[in-house]
Each structure stands twice: as structure tokens, then as C-alpha cells.
Write a protein that binds this DNA or RNA. Sequence first.
RNA 1: GGAGAGGUGGCCGAGUGGACGAAGGCGGUCGCCUGCUAAGCGACUGAGGUGUUAUAAAGCACCUCCGUGGGUUCAAAUCCCACCCUCUCCGCCA
Length: 422
Amino acid sequence: MLDIRFIEDNIELVKDITLRKGYDVNVDHLIEMVRSRRKYIFNLDNLRSERNRKSKEVSRLKRAGEDAGRIIEDVRRIGSDIKALEEKVGELENNIAEIAFKIPNIPHFSVPEGNDEDENLEIRRWGKPPEFDFKYRPHWEIGEMLGILDFKRASKIAGSMFAVYTGLGARLERALLNFFLDMNVKRGYKEIFCPYLVNRDSITGTGQLPHLEDDMYHLDNPDYFLIPTAEVSVTSLHKDETFSEEDLPIYHASYSACFRKEAGAHGRETRGLMRMHQFNKVELVKFTTQETSYDELEGLVSDAEALLQALELPYRVTKLCIGELSFAAAMCYDLEVWIPSEGRYREVSSCSNFEEFQARRLRIRYKPKGGRQSKFVHTLNGSGLALSRTLLAILENFQQEDGSVILPKALVPYMDGLKKIG
RNA sequence: GGAGAGGUGGCCGAGUGGACGAAGGCGGUCGCCUGCUAAGCGACUGAGGUGUUAUAAAGCACCUCCGUGGGUUCAAAUCCCACCCUCUCCGCCA
């Protein structure tokens, strides 16, 4: 959520960004309501002040044993005026919040113009895509040949866009999970394990609601959502808290299963591990001061890159253009790993700075050193990393002609010394 | 799921209708004292909003907030109702 004052001062900018990101929001109506709310509150406070004064008078008279009947009559009248105004203000506040929650974050000034993927800015590449002198296979073929992935049975027990990992496949998934968590902890992150079911407030706080409701699995009674990423639980961990500046930055790393309906994607990429209704991910979350958040973003990207480098997977880093930026992000780098079967790079980590956007919704603040006024923290997060896509990339990039797969050295200790599958 | 107890400021904790944004303590900040530290003494120490000067900071005035939402009352932390959460016991379960 943006600061209402900021919106008032930058009406045209807010309208422009909202429109370009494809959200339908009536900013003028919002401003109108904000202004009338202010007027009502002014009147309301005056009435309350009068009531407080007269109430004290009543109490004084009563203690003195004098008659307070006239004043009581007065206060009764004021009371009903107050109630009417309170209703009006309450209604306005609901309407204001409803609109304000639908306004996306404002991109950082350095974010490139552009509307789609092609206009993202490539920052750097690392590693070289493998060159095969044999007919290489997509990961689902490799996985089925090796007997480590089972999509048929997955669809039997659940449906399409699910996977079953068996034997060394399951072992490899677990190896990756442990490797990621260990690495991240070594780099200063605190390991967190959180609920997969969260309440509406949490998921509104990180910005998935209101507009992504259709993409999330929802339980009716009670009103719970299955998290689409650990970002939701881990960021909301500190809801309603005020840190002192010395506590910051805070680094958290959390594994979770992630659940997505992929409602907009049906029919696309239903094969393999690329897009699933349930997948595993380790998420990195940072809480920082306002001054340091962009340096921290660079650090976050490096931390995620270190994982890909340790796995020897070729990747590139891109900076997302305005149109590609998610609802809550002010700036975002994607890490994309090379996928031989597609002949292109695909996202395995999305590292974003949300600035105050989430913190404002979740009321996460800090007291600056020496300062009185508390400020909103900046929140950041990025995958470190998405497990299934990483596993897929390992199968495809390190496949051999005979169908076997050589494991990256970093994983060997996690595979009980096993260097190769198949 | 049943029975009971409880939710108050950064923390502990008092407060059962009017002088309570809230005693007392701890913690914190500043000052005094002190060779240094400790102890001691004194002052200050919640958040949000509206207005004001100029929608800078600071200030000043007022308002709101005692788990959340309703209600009773001239007046609610205090009384009533619903919900949420925590603790204890029982049941159930991994």
C-alpha cells in the first residue's frame, strides 16, 4: 500500500503506473473520499471534544450534589450527532481502503520502461550453456527413464501439473533442499519454518490479495489460504512489530511447499516440472532500513546467484521492466537458469525490493537511531531457490548420452557420495 | 470438542462506571554523583489521526486506541453480547 499523502501529491504518476500495470482503479474517487474523510474527522473531533468537556462538567456537578439534567440532555444530543458522523467516516474508510489496496507499488526510478518480458534488461550471464553432440532429452523423459520422476501416477492421485519424485529423485529433491538451507544459513540467514496455511490479513499484507485471489487455494471454514510462497508467512511473521534500528537488517530463509492454481496458465506447460500446482521452494526474506534496502537487494541477488554457481548451472540475471514488475515490487531482478530443452533461460528466482509497500500493510516499523518517529522497514525477498526448476535444470544440463545424469560436486555429499544417477 | 482462568504501554503488573492514556516496577534515554564500573538521586520515556504554521523538521491544540467487533449509558479499560487468541484440566490425535 502506498502512503495516502504520497498518492495525493502524485496523482498523475499513480494513475499512470496503475494503468500501465493493468489495474483498474479510480484514483480521483479515492482522493475525493480522502478529502471528505478529513473534513468529517475535523467535525467529529470537535464534537467529541465538546462532549468530553461537558461530561467532565456532569461529573463535577454530580460530585457537588448539583443538578446536571440540562447538560446531560445536551450531551445526549451531541452523542447522536457523533454516532452519525462516525458511521460516515467508517464507511469512507472502508471504501478508501478498498481502493488503496488495489493500487500497485511505484517502480524505482531506475526500472526500465517496457511492457513485457522482451523488454527486461539483461544484466549479466554466468556459465556457458552445454553443447550436446547427441540427441538430448527434456527432463520428463530423463526422469521417467531413470525412474526418478512419475507424472502418470501423480495425475492419478491428484491431477495434471503435479509430480511424484521416487527413489533418487526424491533423494535429489531433499539434497537440494538441505543444500540450499545450509548455504543460506552460512551466508547469515536464520532458518525459519512456517505454516503453509495463513489468514487473510497475512496474504493481503504481502500483496497477493485482493487481485490474485483466483490463483490461490482457499479454505472456506476457517478462512485460510494455502501459501503460494513462504514470503507470505515469513514476511507476516513480524506483522505489528516495531524494531529498533540496531535489530536490522534481519535475514530469514524458509523452506515451504508452495501452492498455486496457475489459473491463467491452463493448457500451457502442463508437462514436467516447470509449472506445478505444488512445488518446493526456499525463500529468502530481508527486513532492512530505508537507506540500505537497495544495497541489500544486490546482496540478496548475490546470495541467490551463489547457489546457482555452486551447482555449476549456467544462468543470467535480468532486471524486470515496469510492465513485468509484480504488484508489490518496486524493483526486481530475475535469475534465469539455462533450460536446454527449451533453448532459453527460465526463472528460478525473483529478487525484489518492496520498499515500504508490504511493511505499511503489515505495520512493520523500526525506530531510527536517535530519531523519535518510527519508520516503516523495507522488505525484500527472493527465492534461494525454487527446487523443482533447479532439479529440472540439473537433469537437463548434466545429462549424458546414455541417459544418466552427472551430479554437481556440491550435491555429492548430500547424496551420500553418489556422483551420478543412472 | 467439554470445563475453567485470562488477554492492559517495549516487558511485568494494578485498575469493577466519572479526576484513567492508565498506579507501581523492570527496561531505555538524558542529567547529577563517581578515579572507572556498580549502586544511588532526578527528569523524561506508547502508537495513530485531525487541525495549526507552509501537507520540511520541531512545537502547540484536540481526537482515537486497554485482544477484535457490536451494545448499554449523559459518561466504558471497567457493565452486556459475539468472535479471536493464550493458559490449565479432561477428551481426541501425529
